[in-house]
Amino acid sequence: MAKETTKAQPQKQVPQQSKSVFPLDKINLVLIAICIVLIAVGFALMGGSANEGSNFNYDIFSTRRTVVGPTIALLGFVLMIVAIMYKKKGNNKPNDASSEQA
């Protein structure tokens, strides 16, 4: 009976994957939630009853429905862009793994 010799096979080294980093921080998500609420409030202010048959409803041209509601909704949409792009001043961590030096 012959001895079986087994060579230790070199284990493959799996390259370390850089941990996935979510591009938005907690403050961004809070600001986005606030903007969604602003947009919903703006659309709610634009809502109301419509004309009913032969009676004309002058409330459809009220300031709340034609100026205040759309302004708040537009403000929510503009602030949404700001909320997505907002970055803290102290958060200057490089995301590129090749720039890290050991």
Results as ranks from 00 to 15, higher is better:
1 M>K: 14
1 M>Q: 11
1 M>G: 15
1 M>L: 14
2 A>R: 12
6 T>G: 05
8 A>Y: 02
9 Q>H: 02
10 P>N: 02
11 Q>T: 10
13 Q>M: 08
13 Q>T: 15
15 P>K: 12
16 Q>L: 15
18 S>M: 09
19 K>I: 01
21 V>T: 11
22 F>H: 06
22 F>K: 06
24 L>R: 02
24 L>D: 01
24 L>K: 05
25 D>L: 04
25 D>M: 00
28 N>R: 00
32 I>F: 06
33 A>C: 09
33 A>N: 05
34 I>V: 14
35 C>N: 10
40 A>M: 12
40 A>E: 03
41 V>S: 02
44 A>C: 01
45 L>S: 00
46 M>V: 05
46 M>W: 03
48 G>W: 04
48 G>H: 08
49 S>M: 05
49 S>C: 00
49 S>H: 04
50 A>D: 12
51 N>Q: 06
51 N>R: 06
52 E>I: 05
52 E>F: 01
53 G>V: 03
54 S>R: 11
56 F>R: 10
56 F>I: 03
56 F>V: 04
58 Y>N: 10
59 D>N: 13
59 D>K: 09
60 I>E: 10
61 F>I: 11
63 T>S: 13
64 R>A: 07
64 R>Y: 02
65 R>Q: 13
66 T>H: 15
67 V>G: 06
71 T>K: 09
71 T>D: 02
72 I>P: 00
72 I>V: 15
74 L>D: 05
75 L>P: 00
75 L>S: 14
76 G>F: 01
77 F>V: 11
78 V>L: 13
78 V>Y: 05
78 V>T: 13
79 L>A: 06
80 M>V: 07
80 M>S: 12
81 I>E: 05
81 I>N: 07
82 V>L: 12
84 I>E: 02
86 Y>W: 13
89 K>E: 15
90 G>P: 03
91 N>K: 14
94 P>C: 01
98 S>N: 14
99 S>G: 03
101 Q>T: 15
101 Q>M: 12
101 Q>K: 15
101 Q>Y: 12
102 A>E: 09
